[in-house]
Amino acid sequence: MKTKPWPMVPLTFVCLLLLPIYWLIAMAFKTDAETTKQLTLWSPHPTFDNFVAIFTERDWWMGYVHAGIYVLMNVVLSIGIAIPAAYAFSRGRFPFQKPLFFSFLLFRLIAPVILVVPFTEIFYDIGLFDTHAAVALAHCYFNLPVAVWILEGAISEVPFEVDQSAWVDGYSLFAFFRRVMLPTIAPSIAVTAFFCFMFSWVEYVLAGALTAVHTKPINGIISRIGDIAEGDFGMLAAVSIIGFIPGLIFMLMVRRHLVEGFSLGRVR
């Protein structure tokens, strides 16, 4: 067995991906004058002002808290409702099963920007405008289908005999889910949660439009600042870098099952 050569193509690709991220990090430690008026690989006088500003101004750091709250609500809601549906799609047989399954995915193809006006109207009318619940609910239309798809794949991997023996042992449907099915597909649930987290965390059009003074999330603040000022690169860079951290931690926790998520549960 000869030793395997280094996979140069993927390595080069990842290095190219990291270059802009390096620049983002470098910019976070620069003043704007430095970013726009000279070219330095790393600032000779790194400044922490941008980070200090984020953690001392309530609007900024609360932006992360708001985003965290609605993302968490969305993940719990999407997964909680997707698990039973995925089970029904996997085990049940009913008319129009396939068309219904695929029509779920069609919702994933609606660009958020299309739904800004109707969502704003609806949430105003029912008094949810500028609440975390509004964004959490709005993000369901694209996260629920993804969750159902990945989890349907995961449940279909579990042999039906497992279900049957649980019925024979006298489990109720609820007890079966809690004691048998959920522990079995736990890794898939974690990956699904990561995907829902990722899509909800990076979405900023609806998140910005459905919130105002009380719940403005971090991405909404970024786009608002961008509308007013030309630049403020150091601040934007610092904000984005802190914004990576929750996703990175989450991703490292599910890293072993990450690829399964990208197969949308369709790895057989």
């Binding site: 990842v14 802009p20 620049w23 910019m27 970013t35 990076v202 970024i222 990576f244 991703m251 990450l258």
Partner: peptide, 28 residues
């Protein structure tokens, strides 16, 4: 490599936009 490749996917569009604006600033 897989973990590193997910990094761009975790970046909001708006951040990507400003990052590339910075990368393509005139002169610097």
């Amino acid at each position: 490599l897989v973990v590193l490749m997910v990094l761009p996917l975790l970046t909001p569009n708006i951040v990507v936009a400003y990052l590339f604006k910075a990368l393509s600033l005139p002169l610097y």
